[in-house]
């Protein structure tokens, strides 16, 4: 594996739209990996639709053009053998930290990148945002669908308290046939059964992957000086001298991380700890390498 960075973080930062950033990230990641794309099965004809400028001309049905003198594209009923469901936590806790890359932005970029990757290779990609005013874009295999996904990720509301259990139940109902469910969340949920609902998704035959998105300061508890801690989801407050509780916090939070990891691994869920100070291409690459490894083992 070449460690040379193929993604320039500054370029990535300057790219305004999430779609562009996702494409840039995917291109860089795949070229670095000597990409081995996922292959699909045979295609079942569904019908024709008019060509939209901007689409790949290779997809134009030239026979239809010869007959009708108009550009048509031949669509299949089921373009892919894989439906990728991207579930992104948009609760208030994902809007952290207040400066720099937030967990929500980091998760959105990873989700968009995965969507781009899936769509580029002909798979279907859908988006599910939770918890408030849930947004659901069902999986589709159209490449232009990436724009809608990216827009939803950018404009989706980021508020409310996350309920991973409810989100998982809803997603299970919507997902239908087996597919790849990728969950992006900080997993901060008061419900102790939240992890169980993720396990349920796995048991229903879905290939589940969890991106546990966290900021470094949450793991290391780097706050210092008298601090008024506020809950971003409930606005509760507590005044604490961080030095006085640092040891206890690190102990408790470490146990929480370990529990998440252990439960996921035991249930066959692909668990990925994504810390926002790690370059996103690194996270993406590790994910893809992990996928290849899993397929090889399967």
């Amino acid at each position: 594996m070449n460690d040379r960075p193929l993604i320039d973080p500054q370029v990535l930062e300057r790219l305004g739209s999430l779609e562009l950033r996702a494409r840039y990230l995917v291109e860089g990641t795949l070229s670095g990996m000597h990409a081995s794309r996922l292959s699909g099965d045979n295609v079942e004809f569904a019908g024709h639709r008019e060509y939209v400028p901007g689409e790949d001309p290779k997809r134009i049905d030239w026979k239809a053009f010869g007959r009708l003198d108009r550009y048509y594209i031949k669509e299949s009923l089921d373009e892919t053998n894989l439906a990728v469901h991207l579930a992104v936590d948009c609760s208030g806790s994902m809007e952290y930290p207040e400066t720099g890359t937030t967990k929500g932005a980091y998760a959105s970029l990873l989700a968009a990148s995965l969507a781009c990757m899936a769509l580029e290779q002909g798979d279907a990609a859908g988006l599910y945002l939770f918890p408030a005013r849930r947004v659901h874009l069902p999986p589709r295999a159209s490449r232009v669908y990436l724009r809608e996904i990216a827009r939803a990720l950018e404009t989706g509301p980021r508020e409310g308290r996350a309920s991973i259990g409810a989100a998982a139940s809803e997603l299970a109902g919507m997902a239908g046939r087996r597919g790849l469910i990728v969950l992006f969340s900080d997993m901060i949920d008061e419900d102790p059964a939240a992890l169980d609902s993720i396990i349920q998704l796995s048991r229903r035959g879905h290939d589940v992957c969890v991106f546990h998105v966290l900021d470094r300061s949450e793991i290391g508890f780097s706050a210092s000086g008298l601090t008024l801690f506020c809950d971003p989801e409930s606005e509760a407050q507590v005044l604490v001298e961080p030095d006085a509780i640092r040891e206890a916090y690190l102990r408790e939070f470490g146990a929480f991380l370990e529990r998440c990891r252990r439960v996921c691994i035991d249930a066959g869920v692909d668990y990925r700890l994504a810390v926002t100070d790690v370059p996103p291409e690194t996270a993406l690459r590790e994910f893809l390498e992990g996928r290849q490894g899993r397929r090889a083992r399967a």
């Binding site: 806790s93 994902m94 809007e95 952290y96 207040e98 967990k103 900080d186 901060i188 008061e190 900021d215 949450e218 706050a223 000086g225 008298l226 601090t227 008024l228 801690f229 506020c230 809950d231 971003p232 989801e233 409930s234 509760a236 507590v238 005044l239 604490v240 006085a244 509780i245 206890a248 916090y249 408790e252 939070f253 929480f256």
Partner: peptide, 19 residues
């Protein structure tokens, strides 16, 4: 005090209550 919106708030609160 410095005000800080901190997602793992519950962990902080629990630790603070204990000590």
């Amino acid at each position: 005090p410095r005000r800080l919106r901190f997602p793992p708030f519950e962990f902080v609160r629990r630790c603070e209550e204990k000590s």
